[in-house]
Measured scan of single mutants.
Amino acid sequence: TETAWISLVTALHLVLGLNAVLGLLLLRWQF
């Protein structure tokens, strides 16, 4: 079960990281 939790947490971190990068790019394009 630990491996499943680790994979789930890493997936969440990757998604949050991608969202942060996309958000910064969108803000930079708007201004």
Score class of each variant (00 low, 15 high):
26 L>R: 08
21 V>Q: 03
9 V>I: 12
18 L>D: 09
26 L>Q: 04
15 V>T: 13
27 L>H: 07
8 L>K: 05
30 Q>Y: 15
7 S>H: 04
24 L>Q: 07
20 A>G: 08
17 G>M: 13
8 L>W: 07
14 L>D: 00
21 V>E: 09
8 L>Q: 06
22 L>T: 00
13 H>V: 15
24 L>A: 13
9 V>T: 09
22 L>R: 08
10 T>P: 02
26 L>K: 09
24 L>I: 12
20 A>L: 14
19 N>K: 11
29 W>H: 15
24 L>D: 07
14 L>A: 07
13 H>A: 15
14 L>F: 11
9 V>S: 03
9 V>F: 10
24 L>N: 01
27 L>A: 05
5 W>Y: 14
10 T>A: 12
29 W>I: 15
17 G>T: 11
26 L>C: 07
9 V>K: 00
3 T>F: 03
25 L>G: 07
6 I>F: 10
28 R>H: 02
9 V>D: 08
17 G>L: 13
11 A>Q: 00
7 S>V: 14
3 T>W: 12
2 E>H: 10
27 L>T: 00
23 G>N: 06
8 L>Y: 08
14 L>W: 03
25 L>M: 13
20 A>Y: 08
1 T>P: 12
8 L>I: 07
23 G>R: 10
13 H>E: 11
22 L>C: 12
18 L>C: 09
24 L>P: 10
17 G>E: 10
21 V>L: 12
5 W>D: 01
15 V>Q: 02
29 W>G: 12
23 G>K: 06
13 H>Q: 11
18 L>F: 10
9 V>A: 00
20 A>R: 04
12 L>R: 06
12 L>M: 08
16 L>R: 03
23 G>I: 15
11 A>G: 09
16 L>A: 11
9 V>H: 00
27 L>V: 09
15 V>K: 01
7 S>C: 14
8 L>V: 06
16 L>C: 14
25 L>Q: 10
9 V>E: 09
1 T>A: 14
26 L>E: 09
13 H>F: 12
12 L>T: 08
10 T>K: 11
4 A>V: 05
7 S>R: 04
14 L>G: 05
27 L>R: 02
3 T>I: 11
5 W>I: 12
27 L>G: 03
11 A>F: 10
12 L>D: 00
23 G>Q: 01
20 A>P: 04
18 L>R: 07
28 R>M: 13
23 G>A: 14
4 A>N: 01
16 L>E: 06
10 T>Y: 00
5 W>K: 00
10 T>C: 11
11 A>C: 11
15 V>Y: 01
6 I>K: 05
21 V>P: 05
14 L>Q: 03
12 L>Y: 02
13 H>S: 15
28 R>T: 08
7 S>E: 06
28 R>D: 01
15 V>I: 07
7 S>P: 07
12 L>P: 01
8 L>P: 04
6 I>Q: 05
4 A>C: 01
24 L>H: 08
5 W>N: 02
18 L>S: 07
20 A>Q: 04
25 L>P: 10
3 T>H: 04
11 A>N: 00
3 T>C: 01
17 G>K: 03
19 N>T: 11
14 L>T: 07
2 E>A: 08
